[in-house]
Structures are given as structure tokens and as C-alpha cells.
Simulated assay, not measured.
Amino acid sequence: MKRSTPVTGAPCWAELGTSGMPAAQTFYSTVFGWRMETDPRDEAGGYTMARLGDAAVAALTPLYQPDQPTAWTVSFAVNDVAATAAAVTEAGGSLITGPMDVFEEGRFAVVSDPEGAVFSLWQARRFAGAELLNAPGALGWAELLTRDPAQAKRFYPEVFGWSVRSSEQYTQWGIGGEDFGGMAKMDERFPPEVPAHWMPYFEVTDVDMTARAATGAGGGVLMEPMDVPDGPRIAVLHDPGRAAFGVHAMGSGRG
């Protein structure tokens, strides 16, 4: 059975940084049915929680740095953010921001792997992360796109203790006996200026219908809906700010 709440070492949150907050809020509300809840505190900087019912499933934020791209960031749950950030740098990655506190909610850092793929570390206090996972409209998979899979296979198990299951076509990451994400090699279809990156996949009930909804709401399709052999139906979409994200069919996994 797929996990419905975060566990240490696995993805626990997805957060969109965008320069077009109003358009992004409208887009994701239309596509996923998310209800937006903006933190009214000035010091929160416009941080907006996306909810399905009462469950927090993701967040949207303004861009906080001049050079910050419009993009989704995946966060991984850790027990000690400072220790994990140190492990990242020891394994050849980089510390970008933090560690720092987020009110009473938790502690985080933004880091990157040796190739520059950015991700976040989250040490929970009052807030553990997504209150719903592996359900329609919620985070269901996290995928690393990289030009150096061999390096990634060394780095992430060293930092997080992940298991690795590889075939010629795809690599799957796991923890505690369950796969939660994967890795795909970036080929000539990716322009040279596109960096290595993590991309969230959100579960949906109908991939094709979601792709049409995204296009109708001002986004578009980067990879047309397709069936993965012995796996789910998937697509890669983008929002009005060109931030990429994946969707996969309800109840499916990549195992």
C-alpha cells in the first residue's frame, strides 16, 4: 500500500516558486481543485498553502531571489537538517540556503546535488509536510532528471540511504522497502541550458483529461500522455509560468 503521510528520507513536500502568483493560483485550482490559503503575516512573504479539503498538499510562493527560476522544488524529510546538509556537501553537493527555522513549523535548507539539481531538506516540528500523498491531486512521485545518472546513484544513497533499482530504461529510488521516485537521463530533447532538476508528479484520476485542463487553463503539454510498460499512464505539463510538473494515473506506481 502506498504511503499517505511523509516518512524520513522520502519526499514530504512540493513547492512552486513563481513570479506569477495570481495566474498560478488560478491554474492549479482549476487543474487539481486546490484551495489556496495565503499566510497573512508580512514575514511569511505571501506563502500560499494549497489544500485538498483540509489537507495541505503543496505550496506556492513568490520568487524570493532575483536569480530564482520559476520552478517546482521537492523537499525530503530528514531528522536533522544540519547533519543532512553537511552530508550533502561531504558527498559533493552544495548548500544554497540555510539551515534556518520557519516559525514553529520546522527547519529547512536548500541544497543541490553535484550536478546542480536543487532540492530542499525539511526537519519537521509542528508541520510534517504533505498531509495527503498518493491520492488524486496530491504528490505521488518525485523524479530526478540528470545527465549523469552514475554520479546520482552514488550521491543520493550516500546522503539518504536510498535503495536503487535500475533497468536499461529507468532507475527507481526507494526507502524502507518502497519506491517513492525515480531518475531519468536527460538526452538531446533537453536544451543544453536546461539544468538537472527534480520534478514532482501529482496523482490524477485521468491523465488525458488533466492535460486538456492544463492547456485550457493557460498551461501546456511538454510530454504527451503515454503508457509506461507495466506502469501508469503519465504526462509532463507546464503551468502559465512554464514550471514543469508531471501527472500520473490514479492508483498507479512505477514498480
Score class of each variant (00 low, 15 high):
Tyr64Gln: 14
Leu237His: 02
Val194Asp: 08
Ala135Lys: 12
Phe180Met: 09
Phe180Asp: 05
Gly161Tyr: 00
Ala55Glu: 15
Ser112Cys: 12
Tyr201Trp: 13
Pro22Val: 04
Glu224Asn: 10
Arg165Asn: 15
Gly106Met: 07
Val102Ile: 12
Asp54Pro: 08
Gly176Lys: 01
Pro225Leu: 04
Trp162Ala: 09
Val74Gly: 06
Arg51Asn: 14
Thr38Lys: 10
Gln68Asn: 08
Thr146Cys: 00
Leu16Tyr: 09
Asp42Gln: 13
Ser163Leu: 09
Leu132Thr: 04
Ala71Glu: 14
Ala142Thr: 15
Thr61Ile: 11
Arg3Tyr: 10
Ser252Cys: 02
Ser120Met: 10
Phe103Leu: 10
Gly137Phe: 01
Ala196Glu: 05
Gln123Cys: 01
Phe119Leu: 11
Gly53Ala: 09
Ala152His: 01
Arg154Glu: 12
Ala184Leu: 15
Phe32Gln: 02
Glu131Cys: 03
His248Leu: 14
Glu178Asp: 15
Arg147Tyr: 04
Val74Pro: 11
Thr215Phe: 00
Phe160Ser: 04
Leu144Gly: 07
Pro11Met: 06
Gly53Cys: 10
Pro62Arg: 00
Asp230Arg: 04
Pro229Ile: 03
Glu143Cys: 06
Ala82Tyr: 01
Gly92Phe: 00
Met36Gln: 07
Asp67Ser: 12
Gly17Ser: 15
Gly20Cys: 14
Glu104Ser: 11
Pro62Glu: 08
Leu133Trp: 04
Val78Ile: 05
Glu90Phe: 00
Ala59Trp: 08
Ile175Asn: 07
Thr89Ser: 09
Gly255Ile: 12
Leu144Cys: 06
Leu63Pro: 12
Arg107Cys: 09
Phe190Gly: 07
Gly116Glu: 05
Ser163Gly: 15
Leu132Lys: 14
Glu115Asp: 01
Gly137Met: 06
Pro200Asp: 11
